[in-house]
Design a protein around this nucleic acid. Structure first.
Lengths: 207, 207
DNA sequence: TCAAAGTTTAAACAATTGTTTAAAATAACT
DNA sequence: AGTTATTTTAAACAATTGTTTAAACTTTGA
């Protein structure tokens, strides 16, 4: 009888958790094995090496990260509504996986750039038609004319950074988790209004 | 005759460079020693351990980071001008030290929180009087009423993230350093306008 | 000049690292 | 049943880790 959760999957889950919090060189294969409750050798039996396992986890993390974006872009909604929804979904997703942004950035520094290539990030974005949608809105004057890379930066900066800077912010302002959560919840609304106002200046004027 | 650059300082410089790019557990003491051209033991002779050396570098990094902010707040300028100057200085500073933000965030995850406490970040911010200045501007209706933690998040998000996400952005959009630099230069202006418009909505309206 | 202090080195240390090997335990199949 | 394939383990592997020791070299100060 097969276990519903295979050993291979259990290792992946544990590796994800450990890698996320400690980074590639911040942990050992024995640490991962121990947290699953198996022998170290099994890790090399299923995955060929620590590096291969890490690549797998990083790819999966990138994939999760892309999917959370693509899902929104595929929605049939006006651009402004997509913007709001994207920010909401990003905050929701990242608050559930707060280690993810820092892990991805640190991980990309460690690994070669191959992971990003094979994740086909750009291709999957193009498939959603979001670029054409923005281009159209920009030429019609509904959206501010800003390079899409800068638009991406605006969104990611304001969604990712607040999550990944938790330790720094809590350390600086001497606040606890509760207060930080409250600030995040408020920040989500701030970012929505600020970005909408900036990118769609004509649409969203309130007296 | 003493060398103008002492061995101790040379080790610090090398350690800073290595730690910044590879992180604490991503490098070895021998690697640092080798890059200085000295024996490994010297590292423990001057600094007691790898950990102590790392703490020193992290503290210095935090200090640089705080100073670049505090300098601006001390200027005798209207709040809007300080805002512009802060963003300009932050971009200028971070483009010179692009590894710093990621290093600090990853480093804080590795170390205990003691570093932030003893850097007295909050105290040094208070000394500049920036909080009172904002409070006054907010009560006079010149500045939007936003919690100072959220204001901090807005600034840091939009200045730090664009720098630290270089690998991700270049990977996603398949652009080289030149194009990325161009985007950063443009982003600096975008961020300035967006933040000014959001935080000081009455002042900065252009038809 | 000479001895004391400070600096630097080579060598060794015990511990830990990722990985492999060969044997044992378990499952699958006929 | 028994045989084969898969899964898991304990043990060992060589390499690397941070750190220490003791000896050499250099500077200093009288």
């Amino acid at each position: 009888m097969k276990k519903d959760i295979t050993t291979e999957q259990k290792i992946k889950d544990a590796a994800r958790k450990v890698f996320m919090t400690k980074g590639f060189s911040g942990c050992t294969t024995r640490e991962i094995a121990k947290s699953v409750g198996i022998n170290v050798a099994l890790l090399n039996y299923y995955f060929r090496s620590k590096g291969k396992l890490f690549e797998l986890i990083l790819e999966a993390a990138l994939s999760d990260f892309i999917n959370s974006m693509v899902d929104v872009f595929k929605q049939d909604l006006p651009l402004e509504e997509k913007t709001r929804m994207l920010i909401d979904k990003e905050f929701e997703f990242l608050r559930k996986h707060p280690e993810l942004p820092l892990f991805i950035h640190a991980g990309l520094n460690q690994e070669s750039d191959s992971e990003l290539d094979q994740s086909n990030f750009l291709g999957r974005l193009h498939e959603t038609g979001i670029f054409e949608e923005c281009e159209k809105a920009q030429s019609e004057g509904r959206m501010r004319k800003v390079n899409m890379i800068n638009v991406t930066l605006l969104f990611m900066s304001n969604c990712h950074f607040p999550i990944m800077s938790k330790k720094l912010i809590c350390g600086i302002y001497q606040i606890d988790d509760n207060e930080h959560n409250a600030r995040l919840t408020e920040h989500q609304e701030i970012v929505k209004e600020m970005l909408i106002n900036y990118l769609f200046p004509n649409t969203n004027k309130h007296a």
